[in-house]
Nucleic acid binder design. Structure first.
Lengths: 222, 222
DNA sequence: ACATTAAGCGTCATGTTGACGATAATAGCC
DNA sequence: GGCTATTATCGTCAACATGACGCTTAATGT
């Protein structure tokens, strides 16, 4: 038999959409191992702290964002024996979907943090794998939950929402069919009554997210 | 700052269908805390062991079943500070969907193990919550994956498969529409050429699981 | 032989999807 | 102002999927 104890960390896969691409918040490592490599932000779980609480705390430390803004959920746990050369480390990864933050990353730890495209390879530790799992989870969840709205501001247009799907899925969707599906799916979005002109073209209605937690029927990937 | 270390365990939510009900493998605790209460089987992760490997080992120890028989996946991780009065314990829960085992539970640890209906309440620790999460995951996964076949023997009839859905979802499904959906869904099941007479009635064709990992279109809950 | 049971095929009205035409409402340009 | 480019939104239609349910087939039990 053996020790059975390990260090426990929470790492975050923070996803957002900037400049039309899916991006993830990464930090540059300042210490060995993997010195100066990009890595997912994260830290140790405190002694009296629940895992969710640790994730919420890290999210605030890294982005200054309150967890109510976007969406935060547990992703998976990684604990292969050799994944950190310093010793046994169990990492509980969390996935967050966030709107493009209007306030720049102001927090203290965030000094070294930067948004990078998700296809950035060569992360420290097994973070490539964790990131890939997070992106795949996000892609799958857009199908049968209204979570795409977590990437949007509080009020958004149907085109904004379509942009989220197109970016995350890397596809083009028919604007007319997408509009029909989104507005007829029970509880997905509800109109605010306002409208805006985005760039060119006819002004669009503004929506906010509806009460549904599951999409009926789902929006399946093409 | 604090210690940041914790004991790490792997607990299993082993689900199967017996006597027409969804059942979970539980063990009676022989020590404090929660003495003589039902609990999920599990144990410590060894020092040089990956989490998945620990889950596979526990599965074999508890049931004698090779992990290739059914389906095993990571469920979620639980680490609230007070969840084990003896100290900080992080539990990585795994979910397994297993066929009704022809070989009785023969393993050593399995002496105290017993299949119980999943609505059995009052488990030790936070195991009620873990079990509920596992059952909900199973229910959801039947919709868009072919995992219902994991509850069946290697060869099964459409009626067997329908029984799985009806038991897990607690609904009745129309046999004719179900038959059509299952046999037309690409890669869900493939005929073996054999057939059997189960009890009364016309003999049914035998199928094995097909190559699909995702159901297109999905089988949505009524 | 006949009733009973369950498998598997067929039908039909309704709902959903994908492809794409048509119209509406704005900005920019002349 | 009038024209054009651009985007939002509505509408149409054929193909496909779904739910309700009738019918035939091939077993078992009496």
């Amino acid at each position: 038999m053996t020790l059975n104890v390990a260090a426990v960390t929470v790492d975050l896969v923070l996803l957002t959409i900037r400049q039309g691409t899916l991006q993830v918040l990464l930090v540059r490592r300042g210490i060995e191992p993997y010195l100066s490599r990009w890595a997912l932000p994260g830290g140790f779980v405190h002694d009296d702290e629940d895992l969710d609480a640790a994730a919420i705390r890290e999210l605030r430390e890294e982005t200054g964002v309150d967890s109510s803004a976007g969406h935060l959920e547990q992703l998976a746990t990684y604990g292969a024996p050799g994944r950190d050369p310093r010793g046994r480390v169990i990492t509980v990864a969390y996935l967050a979907l966030l709107p493009d933050l209007p306030a720049p990353v102001a927090g203290s730890d965030a000094a070294h943090a930067e948004w990078r495209p998700v296809d950035e390879p060569e992360l420290a530790f097994d973070h490539d794998r964790i990131l890939a799992d997070g992106v795949e989870r996000a892609r799958a969840k857009l199908e049968y939950t209204p979570l795409a709205t977590a990437f949007c501001a509080r009020e958004f247009t149907v085109a904004d929402l379509r942009g989220v799907y197109e970016t995350v899925w890397r596809t083009k969707l028919d604007p007319r069919n997408f509009h029909r599906k989104v507005t007829t799916a029970e509880g997905f979005v509800e109109p605010t009554g306002h409208s805006v002109t985005r760039d060119r073209g006819r002004p669009a209605q503004l929506f906010r997210r509806g009460p549904a937690t599951l999409l009926h029927p789902p929006l399946l990937r093409p």
